[in-house]
Design a protein around this nucleic acid. Structure first.
Lengths: 239, 239
DNA sequence: CGCACGGTTGACCTGTATCAAGCCGGGTGG
DNA sequence: CCACCCGGCTTGATACAGGTCAACCGTGCG
């Protein structure tokens, strides 16, 4: 087999529109193909990087599903996000050249490794890429604002509703169903992300089922009444 | 008076080491002086920008104190941060060219207005600036992780302790006392930031006073036993 | 002087945590 | 192929941190 066929190339990657700028000239696209040095497979349960490790690259998820988390000295873990295909990981490492969170694969995954010095170098020459990098970081900041809103100002039901809507929204953008999904994380990980204990997550799922909003069969969910979830997210406090 | 004396210049700004790269050549420093188009004064209570407004610039705080917040449709406000001299605001606007949060001055303030297209242009030529911008955004992401940890996994006392240590840490970096500080925000704003109600914030302050950890006289605080606060948090303070 | 606003404190309530028991489904080994 | 086990999940009973409601206080300003 021709070794060329193994060449990593963004230009023919079907996730390109998710992780790369859209309006590139053919010449720029060619150069961007060089961004991805290698690919890396990560087995379910293994970590892509962990806190304290040196930072050198950003990672674009080609397939699979990750969680990122930070940990307190006493062992308390806070899940800071769940990442899926087309999303970029590793931004936390830029500021101090050390990763500050852990990234663990929740299912077998493959990522494109993009050395950050290469990204910076190419960004200086391709302004569309430069702006794209800025947007990715800004998007992450804005996402975290909404997590802060969830954690600081919402009740358990509202947090879970917001979480489910966010997941389906992102899955739908990747061609999956709007109403059916498979959770890749445990109830405990959902709880950590939402600032809730596992029992509360479970009870809230059950409540949604009782109300006919959701069908739950282990990790398989079907959203029967997305409108009800949506109302919960921006509902007045005493409903 | 010579109009030159009014020229905005980072090169002779005493906050430069806080908001600009440290190791610039004289030539690069010259160019960076052009980044700041204008300065803008913001009166206490006024907003620097608000959600929905178009994005065009980042802002470096020269003096004063700000809060940033996001708001739910039903009016619930979540304070996402407090910003002081030398810190950069406006990063939330990059992703969609619209601001998604409000920035309100908690005391009369002055900011340096840095048009973002200029920042990008100059970043392409001065790699130290480019990397600095990346670091600022990454730092904000990491900061928000620790807020998520606070909101998701800490109890009221721990949150307030973490908040106070973070504030004094940043104030100390600006030459202020490690143990005495003046709160520029209300108890309600602290509560919003920490995901607590005003009564809980007040009670927790009182508890710290009872325990001899803190002296509180309205907005004036004196930290008597920083070690006790540190133990409560048992985590390194980032940012 | 008196009002208004931010803050404190007390009494009580409730949403979520905690503790505990049991269930379910998938994997393993006999 | 079944029995068992184990990890993830659910459910119930109870506890408690923090929320809610309400009264009051202190300071600063008109």
């Amino acid at each position: 087999m021709n070794p060329q066929s193994f060449k990593v190339a963004c230009s023919n990657c079907n996730l390109r529109e998710l992780c790369m700028p859209v309006d590139l000239s053919a010449a720029d696209l060619d150069r961007i193909d060089d961004l991805v040095g290698t690919r890396r497979k990560v087995k379910r349960g293994d970590s892509l990087y962990h806190h304290g490790a040196g930072f050198s690259s950003l990672y674009a998820i080609r397939s699979g599903f990750f969680k990122t988390s930070v940990t307190l000295e006493d062992g308390r873990e806070q899940v800071t996000g769940f990442q899926m295909a087309g999303e970029i990981m590793g931004l936390d490492g830029i500021v101090s050249d050390l990763h500050t969170c852990d990234a663990v694969a929740l299912e077998n995954a493959e990522v494109c490794v993009m050395p950050f010095d290469k990204i910076e170098e190419l960004s200086r020459e391709v302004s569309a890429l430069q702006h794209h990098v800025h947007k990715i970081m800004s998007r992450e900041i804005v996402r975290e604002h909404s997590v802060m809103m969830m954690l600081g100002s919402m009740r358990a039901e509202e947090r879970l509703a917001a979480f489910l809507l966010n997941l389906t929204h992102r899955l739908h953008a990747r061609g999956f169903s709007r109403s059916e999904l498979v959770l890749r994380m445990t109830r405990e990980e959902i709880g950590s992300y939402l600032g809730l204990k596992i029992e509360t997550v479970s009870r809230t799922f059950s409540k949604f089922v009782d109300e006919g909003v959701l069908e739950v069969k282990q990790k398989n969910l079907r959203i029967l009444r997305p409108d009800t979830l949506q109302q919960l997210v921006n509902a007045p406090i005493n409903c």
